[in-house]
């Protein structure tokens, strides 16, 4: 009898728990770019506070974000680049219809150590540094020191955008380039390495690093918004089919005054 009672009690507890999780299904799961991550996180904090809907944000790179959306393990994929044709094909094959929403504009800042006397580089010079043509700062008007080239890993949207906007199809990035796993890690390496050059989202630039002028144009909110800064890209959130319900409400935050304030506070530019 005692045993029987225990079993009934256990089943009741399990049932209760199952009921509880079913009720809490009203949540949004996000995955993807480390560049879009900060926007997603401050949106999420605000959204949870105002609506009570739980939002989880993972930052595993744009490629992984696309993968999660295709595998239906997230509601919104944050991406700092457009979906590639291959990814769109894979999505179609799994019955997922990715719909893009541009949440903000971002400039990719070329950063160097604050002690470096180089203040401006042309796009051709940056390309030369990254494809290995220039290996010493003295070749681009700097001190006599070997250039430590820092790039991002292959599933980074920033890396893809940089390659597309600066390198072009023909010239691969030099084999000597070091690889770091996030915008923060690149910033950290550049801030502590006098001879380093790296590229990070404009929102990550702080006093620890110096963003150089590209083709004579300072990277800031104005030049990114009017498109004169040469390394500018849109940031995306992708949903499976048109956004509805809480997800739509979440993405629409970008056009509310509060959302616009959050975007520009993070150093990005409103679309």
């Amino acid at each position: 009898m005692n045993l029987f009672r225990k079993i009934v009690f256990g089943a009741a507890v399990l049932g209760f728990m199952a009921g509880g999780t079913a009720e809490a299904a009203n949540k949004i799961v996000m995955d993807g770019s480390t560049t879009v991550g900060p926007i997603a996180k401050s949106f999420a904090a605000y959204f949870t506070k105002t609506t009570g809907v739980q939002v989880t944000v993972s930052e595993s790179g744009s490629g992984n974000g696309a993968k999660s959306l295709i595998n239906k393990t997230c509601d919104i994929a944050n991406m700092s680049r457009e979906m590639k044709d291959k990814e769109l094909a894979a999505a179609r094959a799994k019955g997922v219809k990715p719909v893009e929403h541009i949440v903000a504009m971002d400039g990719i800042a070329i950063v160097v150590h604050p002690g470096n006397r180089v203040n401006a580089l042309s796009k051709a010079q940056i390309r030369g540094i990254y494809n290995g043509k220039y290996t010493n700062w003295s070749q681009v008007g700097g001190p006599n020191a070997r250039i430590v080239v820092i790039q991002r890993e292959s599933n980074s949207g920033t890396q893809d955008s940089f390659k597309e906007l600066v390198m072009g199809k023909e010239s691969p990035i030099t084999k000597n380039a070091e690889t770091q796993a996030s915008n923060g890690a690149v910033k950290n390496r550049v801030a502590t390495t006098p001879a380093a050059i790296g590229f990070i989202g404009l929102g990550f630039v702080d006093s620890g690093v110096k963003a150089v002028m590209v083709d004579g144009i300072e990277p800031d909110e104005r030049t990114v918004k009017n498109g004169t800064y040469p390394i500018t890209r849109p940031l995306f959130m992708y949903t499976n089919g048109p956004a509805t319900g809480a997800v739509k409400q979440f993405i629409d935050l970008k056009s509310t005054p509060e959302g616009k304030r959050m975007i520009s506070e993070l150093g990005f530019v409103n679309h």
Binding site: S60, G61, G63, N64, K67, I70, K84, K86, E87, A90, E153, S154, N155, T179, A181
Partner: peptide, 11 residues
């Protein structure tokens, strides 16, 4: 490092 992008989907 290359795990993220490299699944059956992308080549």
């Amino acid at each position: 490092g290359d795990m993220g992008e490299a699944d059956q989907v992308t080549g």
